[in-house]
Amino acid sequence: MLRSLWISKTGMDAQQMNLDVITNNLANSSTTAFKRVQPMFQDLLYTTLRAAGSSSNAQNLLPTGLQIGAGSAVTSTERIMIQGSMLQTGNQLDVAINGNGFFQIQLADGTLAYTRQGQFSLSSTGQIVTQAGNTVAGAGVIPSTATGITISSAGLVQYSTQGSSTLTQAGQFTMANFANPAGLVAIGGNNFIPSPASGTAQNQIAGTNGMGTTQQYYVEQSNVNVAEELVNLIAAQRAYEINTRAVTASDQILQRVSNLGQ
């Protein structure tokens, strides 16, 4: 079989995965705090037919060799953790992180996860929870008698009550950061869990030691640039089409070789 058929196949596989990543980015362009994903490509192993520097005769060495590549592949997907733009909502339980860091939440099975999606609500017991009902660590409990909630830039959660001008502290968001946030594992729902690549969570108070600040009444928007993704989509489609043409050309060569034997 011609090498070009296999090489074209690897190219189509790689561009298909590239299309999958791009379409997922576009599908989440309106998802709060979503971070776009970028596929990483690399070339595959080479077959060396003639080594560079080998002897061409008794006196001379070849300045270049002869190698044939085996195609390309997507080796990883990197999450781009650039800050998304801020959108003011007016909701007192909407909180955006301006800078580095994540909110720490507790999943239903007790696992700790991390998110930047700060569209929170109150549970029936007064706990601050995510839209999926997961408890936000450190936020405390807001009593049913509270008339307003104030969240400072340091993540301090306070509430007011009827007839009192004094704010009462309920808690303070547990903020976390990682040595390599791009190494976090996405588990859906805008949640992440640590991996050996991300390192362990480093808990800090918002606004200290490089941690971002919390901004009440705002949410962080997706950092997906739709125009850029559409350009990438067109480029991936064209690359896929070119690989299919290489398959067609290889097939035509095989047909001609087969016809010569008849």
Rank of each mutant, 00 (worst) to 15 (best):
V219S: 00
E229F: 06
Q131D: 09
G155T: 05
L87V: 10
Q158D: 10
S144I: 07
D43T: 13
G65E: 02
N60I: 04
T48Y: 02
G148Q: 11
E78V: 12
T125Y: 02
V157C: 07
I193W: 10
G101M: 05
G99F: 01
P196F: 10
V74F: 04
S121M: 14
Q252P: 01
N223Y: 14
D251H: 08
L66W: 03
V157R: 14
I253P: 01
N28T: 09
T150S: 11
A236N: 02
G212F: 07
Q169D: 10
T145P: 04
E241F: 03
G69N: 06
L122Q: 02
I97G: 07
V157H: 12
E241S: 10
Y218R: 13
Q127R: 13
A236V: 01
E241I: 00
L26H: 07
N259D: 12
A235D: 05
I253R: 05
M81T: 00
G210F: 15
T10E: 09
M175Q: 12
L66P: 05
L2G: 00
L184V: 07
T89I: 04
F120H: 03
N191K: 09
L167M: 14
A96T: 05
A73P: 07
L45T: 01
Q252G: 02
I149P: 06
G84E: 12
I68T: 07
T200H: 11
E78S: 15
R238G: 08
A201R: 13
V95N: 00
L45W: 04
S85T: 10
T77C: 03
M12T: 02
S250M: 06
I142D: 05
R36V: 05
Q127S: 10
Q106G: 08
T145V: 11
A51Y: 03
G148C: 08
S76Q: 15
V157Q: 08
Y114E: 02
Q202S: 08
A170K: 00
G71L: 08
A96E: 04
N243Q: 04
Q15F: 02
S144C: 03
Q255F: 03
L62R: 14
T115R: 06
D43Y: 00
L254D: 03
G199F: 05
A239W: 01
T244N: 00
Q255W: 01
L19N: 04
G99C: 05
S153D: 08
A58C: 05
D251E: 13
N180V: 04
G212T: 13
I193V: 15
V129R: 02
L122W: 03
Q169H: 06
A137L: 05
M211C: 06
I80A: 10
T111V: 15
V141C: 00
A182I: 00
T10N: 13
T75M: 08
G126C: 05
T135H: 08
D109C: 12
L49T: 06
P39F: 14
M86F: 15
S30H: 12
Q255K: 09
L156M: 15
I7Y: 04
L233Q: 02
N191L: 13
A96Y: 02
Q172R: 10
F102R: 01
Q216F: 05
T75V: 14
R79E: 15
G126K: 05
N190G: 14
L93K: 02
N100D: 12
F120R: 04
I187E: 06
Q104P: 02
S144N: 13
A70N: 10
Q202A: 09
L44F: 01
M175P: 03
I97Q: 04
Q221N: 14
S56K: 13
G118N: 09
